[in-house]
Design a protein around this nucleic acid. Structure first.
Lengths: 136, 136
DNA sequence: ATACGTGCAAAGGTTTTGCGGTTCC
DNA sequence: GGAACCGCAAAACCTTTGCACGTAT
């Protein structure tokens, strides 16, 4: 039922998808662009923007807005959570087991769910330990 | 432990907070600005940006990034979910009962949580019904 | 009186887009 | 060969910021 978003296969798009799938750091477009240029020096930032948007529309990557300053992308599309560390700024994947129960609640209220995002704002494990040491 | 963010009380900030608290539509800055100008015609958009940012830093409103194009604000700061309707663009509040269990999982893994956001992407009740009628 | 907040406008940063050239099919 | 896609640069947007003036305390 999903229309064909990509009419042709291109090297650029493959490189972009590869980069996002092979990192755990939830890169923004600039990060992807920098890495892509090492493989393909003439790629343009516009191409990265265009393709990453298409890839997320196609459901092949996840577009994250957890960092309110910039969109980040995630190559794992299964339902999982993210935590933004308010100390170091890192975005960490969080595996969650009981999201489907939450979704069940919502569906019973008459909504249709295509995708669920769970975001936590706080401290990652490293920064949480540091905080304990210099605690106040 | 929270430092004083506001050194003075201003009319502008009160109007802004009032607007966000008295709507369920999760307005963006432009929406707030338009409404504020009806009460206070000389208010500037910069003031809205400055104050809404301060209010969210103070924890008095929630800054939502569910609509990836623009930041929206929510006057309800208790933990609850949101659904972005991919058909009509509306953002709906979703009351959720079991978020604390999710948070428990995450805390046990060594993270500290200050805030939790649950977002659903799909169809609101109205659009879901329509979809059924013209179903394919 | 004084320093905090506002209004205005310019600047900053991210993302989109128009266009001519290139490439995939 | 022709449509789809790219590279480049400009434009569009959202948001922040500097500065002079106004205002709450």
């Amino acid at each position: 039922m999903k229309e064909a978003i990509f009419k042709r296969k291109t090297n650029q798009r493959e490189v972009i998808l590869d980069i996002v799938r092979n990192t755990k750091c939830h890169p923004c477009v600039d990060n992807i662009y920098d890495e892509a240029r090492e493989i393909m020096p003439r790629i343009s930032k516009g191409t990265v923007y265009r393709n990453i948007k298409l890839l997320s529309q196609a459901g092949m990557v996840l577009e994250l807005s957890i960092d309110h300053n910039v969109l980040r992308y995630d190559g794992s599309t299964h339902t999982h959570g993210h935590l933004l560390c308010e100390n170091c700024g890192a975005v960490t994947d969080i595996e969650l087991t009981s999201v489907s129960e939450l979704e069940q609640q919502v569906k019973q209220q008459g909504y249709k769910i295509n995708n669920t995002i769970v975001e936590f704002y706080g401290l990652c494990t490293k920064c949480n330990i540091k905080k304990d040491n210099h605690s106040n």
